[in-house]
Structures are given as C-alpha cells and as structure tokens.
Design a protein around this nucleic acid. Structure first.
Lengths: 245, 245
DNA sequence: GTAATAGTGTCTTTTAGACAGTATCGA
DNA sequence: TCGATACTGTCTAAAAGACACTATTAC
C-alpha cells in the first residue's frame, strides 16, 4: 500500500469486485416479508435461468463508492433513486463465481416501502417480489452465485434487528398504526407481543410520533396513525420486547 | 457479471483492494483497552511517520479470501497464527488513499489476549500498544489513510457488543474472575454494574463455566476462576445488564 | 485485630405478563 | 343490536436496584 500507484503493475493483483442488494418489502395485507429477485436470462453464460438478487460489477471507472454501485444495481431493476441501504457483509473467495474467479462481493440490504415499489411487479417479466420464507425453502443450487447465502444473512439480520430497533418502520407506509408495527415485529421475530406492554413502551421510548388521522378498514374501530420519530436514536425499548409466555 | 472472465478486459475496471485490522487487547491491571498501531516509515511515499493500523493489499494471486489477507497483515506485525477476527465494515471511495485511487478497504477487528501478544511490545520498535481512549483524542491527520475512522467504528462496535454479548471474554485471560469480567464491561460501556444482579445473571445464563482454582492478588480474598462457556450461544442476558442508577 | 476485595442475602422498586374491560367503527 | 379490532386498566409475577452483611486473604 505504500508503493506509488501504477496501474500496469497493480492491475494483476486486483480481484473482481461486485455488489449485491437484498431489497426487502413488506406486504401489509398478507403480513409477509418479500424480496425482489430476477431470473437470469436463459442465454446467460453463467447461471442461466437461476434466481438472482439485484447485482452489478464495481467498475472503478464508473462509480467511486460501493454504495453508488449498489444504488445503480437497484436503479437498474426498480428505477428507485434514494433507497435505504445497509451494508450487510463482504463475501470473498473463489466459490462465488462459477469460473472460480477470486471475487469480492459487497452485499447490502435495502428496506423499501411497498407503495414505492409494487407498481413494478407486473411490468418487467423477469422481476418478482417473492415471499422470503418460501424462497428460503428453495435449494441453494436454484440460486445464482452465493445469493442464497446473502439472502439468509440479510434475513437473519432483519429479524434480529426487529427485536431491538425501529428499523422495520422503513418497511411500513409512512403513516401506520400501532397494530401494524406490532404485527411486523411479530412476523419477523416469531413472538407474540403483549399488547399493553407494547403500547406503553412506545409511549415511554418516544420511538413513534402520533400524526393526524386514523386508519379505517371499514369494519372495525379505526386506529390512530403514527410515524417513525426521525429524532429517535438508539435501541427500541431495549429488551422489554419480550413475548407472551 | 455475466460476461466470461477475461483478465485483459476486466482488469481496468477493478479497484484497488486492501484490508485493515484493528487489533485490540485489554490491560487488566490498568483496566484499559489498547490497540496495536505502527508508525509508517519516514521514507514511505504515502503518510510517512503517520499512525497506522496493520494493513495489507488484497492480492488475488496470493490470497483467496479477505480473512486470509487480514490474517497475513496481523501475522506481519505480531507473528500470530489464528487470531479472532470479526468483519467490521467495508470502506470505499476516492478519499482513503492520498493518490485518490479508487479504493476498497475491508476492515476487521481482532480481540487478542494480552498474554499472547504483549511480548512483542518491545522487540519491534515501530510497533506500539496504545490506549484507545488516548489515541482517539488525536487529530485524524496524524493517522494514515482512513484509519481514524476505522478505529472509531471498531471501538464503537466493541463497546456496544460489551453490553449484550460475552465477546469481551476474548480480551481476558482464558481463566478470569467475575470481577475481571464485570470490570471490562464497566470500562467499555461506561456503566457501573450492580454486583449481585451481575452474578445472578451469569449463573442463570450459563455464559461462564467455573474452573478449578482461585485468583490471588496477595492482599484480599481470592476470587473463583471461570472460563467462557464455549457452548454458549446468543446474547449475554439480553438487556438486563442495566447499570446502577 | 485491620484493610481490602469476594461473594451472598434481603428488602424495595420497577417492569413484564395475563387478561378483563371499555371504545368505536360498519352493517 | 353484533362482530371485529383498538385501546386501557388492573392485578400478579418476575426482575432489577440498593445496600447491608458475611467470607477470606495479607499484614
């Protein structure tokens, strides 16, 4: 690292670098977490027809950060400009690419609101929002690259974060109800939450802010709308998010 | 990523890739977290004389994973074979290297036992174990590359993990006392822990295993020795590690 | 004996858990 | 009115917090 930069000397040492994005959204009516995948073209030279997550090459002539490369990969698929991106993990090794290139794969997860992305479902035929639970039941050789491993890690992370951060509010509409918020945590953690506890914790912590308006599903009591408190920093009621029994 | 691998075509796109390791140890008698740094040579072409963390180039001809490159970087400095490595973050951009090369820096933290590394303190003159708190008070232009940023992130992570995982046991001797364990958590979190609570949690959780023998400092009651329970998985008493007042 | 730190017990306060009960909508 | 879900209150159980007390070492 201390030698002067000389492209012709250094190029040969350099590994192939790519980015992968795991775009999540949450289907509020089905209470199900979904991920965006595409099918590799039938005539692709590697992994034809396999399931893949949005990805791209990190080309230093085109981008200057990996976040930029990840944004471009999402943009390619969804035409979304400023997605919420979290760096997940950097995978390295010879077994990511079938040609056994020594590859570096910088993976991101992205939490998206259903309303912002769902319209693209039908228009592009190789794209699909698919239930994460269903997809994870699929054998890893149905996936391109190491994408099952990436998805597993991203899913594990999001479920774990649902326990102690309000990050999942990024998957809900901007205005949502407490039952919505409660439900998504229950879905991701597998717990059943105590209702009155949950509500008092929200009040105490200030994690949500009440906004004007009520939900109305047309056949039960309307619920107060809230938004995520943008100034809230830190854990979401550290630990008291324990389940019923 | 779908095009066949051809080095001559792809090389030009590839960024410079390096690894950085943040090696931590804990000075039990001073109750102080330390980090291993070296001074860049005076005649180095970049950052001469600056403070740097162990680092190295990721050369795809030499290593096949980033972990391997990180192990080599530590090995260079400390002759340690199998260090405990955690992937921290991957930094990317044009501002890591002064020549404004587009660089990818995969950073790791490493938790080391004092007994295993301290002997190298004196032998190599450009190496130094230095108090993290003191070092972080130093302006970022005393550091090489983005190494202050890397150190800050690693320190933040280790302090946060001290709250809810038993990871800090990797910084203690293999056999240690409950007061030792309590103290390191107090130092890293800045809390003062309730003694009887702390002990009952350790019993309940099974995070430690009692071993034969007692400590003896020569002037107070000897304390029972414990080791980290290798089968313990998950959080260390999720969240009940709250402080005194 | 004292100083010093290890380790336990016990009481009070806080928080979680269970669940009954009230509120507000559509039909 | 009823069915459905939102929301509140109250009692009990469990865990945290404060702190006094006992234990074991060197001197």
């Amino acid at each position: 690292m201390s030698t002067k930069y000389n492209p012709s000397i250094h190029n040969d040492a350099r590994p192939n670098v790519g980015v992968t994005v795991v775009p999540f959204t949450y289907d509020l009516s089905a209470c199900d977490l979904k991920v965006l995948i595409y099918r590799r073209p039938i005539d692709a030279e590697v992994f034809p027809g396999k399931i893949a997550l949005p990805n791209g090459v990190y080309d230093r002539r085109v981008v200057s950060t990996a976040e930029e490369a990840a944004e471009n990969a999402l943009m390619d698929k969804l035409k979304i400009k400023i997605p919420h991106l979290d760096q997940l993990h950097t995978f390295t090794g010879n077994d990511i690419d079938p040609q056994r290139m020594n590859t570096i794969n910088i993976a991101y997860s992205s939490l998206l609101r259903e309303s912002e992305v769902v319209s693209f479902n039908d228009s592009v035929s190789d794209l699909e929002w698919i239930s994460v639970k269903k997809l994870l039941a699929t054998s890893s050789d149905m996936y391109a690259f190491n994408h099952k491993e990436v998805l597993e890690k991203a899913y594990e992370r999001i479920c774990s974060q649902a326990e102690y951060t309000p990050l999942t509010t990024n998957l809900l509409p901007k205005k949502f109800t407490i039952p919505d918020f409660k439900k998504i945590i229950e879905v991701l953690t597998g717990w059943e939450l105590n209702n009155s506890r949950f509500r008092s914790r929200i009040k105490q912590s200030g994690v949500l802010k009440e906004v004007k308006g009520k939900s109305n599903d047309g056949f039960s009591k309307p619920a107060q709308l809230y938004k995520a408190n943008p100034n809230y920093d830190g854990y979401f009621y550290p630990k008291s998010l324990t389940g019923v029994k």
